[in-house]
Simulated scan of single mutants.
Amino acid sequence: MTTIEQRATQRSQSEPRRRSGKRPVWMETPGPLVQAAKAVALGISLLLVIIPFWSVLATSLADQQTINSSGGGMVMWPHGFSLNAYSAVLSGGVVTRAMVISILITAVGTFVSLATTAGLAYWLSRPGAAGAKPMLLLVLGAVLFTPGLIPSYLVVKEFQLLDNYASLILPVMVNAFNVIVMRAFFQQLPQELFESAAIDGASSATILFRLVLPLSKAVLAVIGLFYAVSYWNAFFNAMLYIQTTDKWPLALVLRTFVVNQSAIGGDQVGSGEALPPQLPMQMSILVIAILPILLVYPFLQRHFAKGVMIGAVKG
């Protein structure tokens, strides 16, 4: 056997098994036992997620007799359904006003945060942009070191933002982590497209609004959902900066009612009907607070599934 034949034989023996048509182990179809185990694990995980939500919804719809029979605790299936808790919560006007305030804060805050985050991330993603490196160091420093409670309060007070809705948006307008994620996404876009647009005379603003943002719907949907959820659920800043109770957002109203056991509804429900038990009223406010996010998420799910993979795959 010649030297060339020996080398060919050694090379053929060292070839990966994929040439024989066999796929890697992790790509093989699992057996029935493995599939059954996955189905059981998925079913258990699904139940662990659904059961608490169902218990909250069922308790909010339970009548007085069901609550009394359960010992005043949570119920899984009410014997009689009643909307008195929702009527009592919404009739007082406090929850309705707080919901409108939360919707406005979430809408304005999400728009402002997305605009500033996209602009800052685009600037940091441009090669050779003036001052980009020092600003990137500041952004990374903001991820590692968060401001303290007292300095944040003093800054808000110095700018005369106390008891103002701007205090719920401006201090948290830009999230450093979201900036880094969006910058990484912008850097993965084809740079040749931007270079050709610049050669044709397009300005940086034109490239951002005409090219970058239309190609970045996935990351905008993900970051926008993160901002919207944080604005909707935020209550601590409102508790610090908003002194007027009529300006409280829904999250703070919910926290006050659940923790401090404060009354929200009126003294009567309808005409002459007593207030429902306190627990169904608490759960009804919780359902009202969860519902808007549940309604918005299906419209963003298509982009969200793609956006969460940002930076996970190279090439």
Rank of each mutant, 00 (worst) to 15 (best):
R126F: 02
G128M: 01
G128H: 10
G128W: 11
A129L: 04
A129F: 04
G131H: 04
G131D: 06
A132F: 00
A132R: 03
A132E: 04
K133I: 01
M135R: 05
L136M: 09
L137H: 02
L138G: 12
L138C: 15
V139G: 04
L140E: 06
L140Y: 01
L140T: 00
L140K: 01
A142S: 12
A142F: 01
L144K: 05
F145H: 08
P147Q: 15
P147M: 13
G148R: 15
I150Q: 11
S152V: 05
S152F: 01
L154Y: 15
L154E: 13
V155M: 15
K157W: 14
E158D: 13
F159N: 07
Q160W: 11
L161P: 12
L161R: 00
L162C: 08
L162P: 10
N164E: 07
N164Y: 01
Y165T: 02
L168Q: 08
L168P: 11
I169W: 08
V172Y: 06
M173S: 08
N175F: 04
N175C: 00
A176P: 14
F177V: 13
F177E: 02
F177M: 08
V179K: 05
I180E: 01
I180A: 02
V181K: 02
R183I: 10
R183Y: 07
Q187P: 01
L189N: 15
P190C: 05
Q191E: 11
S196V: 14
A197C: 11
A198I: 03
G201M: 07
A202H: 09
A202E: 12
S203C: 07
A205I: 15
A205V: 15
A205L: 15
T206F: 07
L208Y: 14
F209S: 12
F209T: 13
F209L: 11
R210A: 11
L211N: 10
L211D: 00
L211I: 13
V212F: 04
V212I: 10
L213D: 14
L215F: 09
K217D: 00
V219R: 03
A221D: 05
A221N: 11
A221L: 02
V222E: 08
V222D: 05
G224P: 06
L225W: 02
L225I: 08
L225D: 07
L225G: 02
L225V: 06
F226K: 05
Y227M: 01
V229A: 02
Y231C: 05
W232P: 02
W232K: 07
W232Y: 06
A234M: 12
F235P: 12
F235G: 03
N237P: 04
N237C: 00
A238V: 06
M239T: 02
L240H: 09
L240D: 12
Y241P: 07
Y241V: 00
K247F: 09
K247H: 11
W248N: 14
W248A: 08
W248H: 14
W248D: 05
W248C: 10
P249W: 09
L250S: 04
L252Y: 12
L252H: 03
V253N: 09
V253K: 06
L254P: 06
L254S: 03
R255K: 15
T256A: 10
T256C: 06
T256N: 14
T256S: 13
